[in-house]
Design a protein around this nucleic acid. Structure first.
Lengths: 196, 196
DNA sequence: TGTTGTCATGAACGGGTGTTCAGATATCCT
DNA sequence: AGGATATCTGAACACCCGTTCATGACAACA
């Protein structure tokens, strides 16, 4: 196995994943065929299997990559310690990150049922780790008397659902800029958790 | 066409729709075959086409039935005029109605992309009518100085996304009763729109 | 009792599915 | 130049898809 072919192989694999991501997001995992993906990359079907174990693992890889990149990006934000400032940072980060990656978000939320039980559990665990970051902020804020939440877990799910919903209607060329949307949601999220 | 056969036919059609609803919700529209649906009802495939034009119209009928029932149920609530009381009523209604119909909700939100353009537009129009009910409450409340929302449309989308999210985690046998969940969300929604 | 109309069967249609694999091809190292 | 290795092609495998239709069963009315 030579270095050059390794590189070329890695690039082909990336192009396959990129094509699959776009097609899965547009038509849904079940509706996309391996032949379609191969055609998009300019290959015959059989060649896909030099880079991917099977169709399902292609989906799993896309989901896992997304969730791990999401967690890494959140950590890279280095949000402030103060709960209210951390909440604002989280809201802005979540909206910005998700709005910039509609395909990944769509797949990660909609195609979970096409995963086998073990793959499902793995992705769910990553999602739970992400949710726990917000839950920690809300719990600390509540303890410090800065927030007023009856149930930190429920508040977490409510805020994340609210924020993720932005991806269903936001369009960059729309009436509001992303900055404006962020600002509106920061205000709503802060008020929802009773930030003073 | 005799009365008896009419009745039997209507019942068979209803059983087909019920089976399709359950299977679509569990496995996704694209992953469910007409043969599976027929098997669930105890028929051969061909017999389905005595009751349904084709697979897509089966999906459309399920979605349209759901959205129209949702609108009718909201109207039947006869919510108060006062914006804050109306909002509380809306929140409780939305959570209760959606939590009771997880399959319909799942399909109506996830399978939109399997609709042709004209069917899609029809379902979207129904959804918009539902959203407009809430938007009207928020706009009136803001005008009256009871709510504080920067953008009634965005606030509507945020509140609905927050509420609908409940269906992704709520379980009747879980830690919280539906009543408790409703109460938590009423409080969060009211605070989010700045209800005084 | 015979006629009419509804509904189900079972088979067929043309085509698409994910996956495998022998053989051809291209690339790199010696 | 020659051998090794990674990658691609093209065909095949066994199976499933949505939809149609001739045939037949059965129930209701005249």
């Amino acid at each position: 196995m030579t270095r050059q072919t390794r590189i070329r192989s890695a690039e082909t694999g990336a192009r396959i994943r990129a094509a699959a991501l776009r097609l899965f997001a547009r038509d849904g995992y079940a509706a996309v065929s391996m032949r379609q993906i191969a055609g998009e990359v300019g290959l015959q079907v059989g060649a896909l299997y030099n880079h991917v174990a099977d169709k399902q693992s292609l989906l799993v890889v896309l989901m896992r990559e997304h969730m791990e990149a999401l967690l890494a990006a959140l950590d890279a934000e280095a949000l402030p310690e103060a709960p209210d400032a951390a909440l604002e940072g989280f809201v802005r980060f979540h909206i910005r990150y998700h709005a910039a990656r509609p395909d990944e978000v769509f797949i990660a939320y909609m195609e979970l049922r096409n995963l086998g039980p073990e793959n499902f559990a793995g992705i769910e665990a990553l999602r739970r780790r992400y949710e726990d970051r917000l839950e920690g902020m809300l719990a600390r804020g509540a303890e410090a008397g800065i927030f007023s939440v009856r149930d930190a877990r429920v508040a977490t799910m409510a805020v994340i659902a609210m924020l993720t919903g932005v991806t269903t209607w936001f369009r960059p060329e729309g009436r509001l800029s992303l900055d404006e949307v962020e600002a509106i949601y920061v205000e709503m999220a802060r008020k929802a958790v009773g930030a003073r």
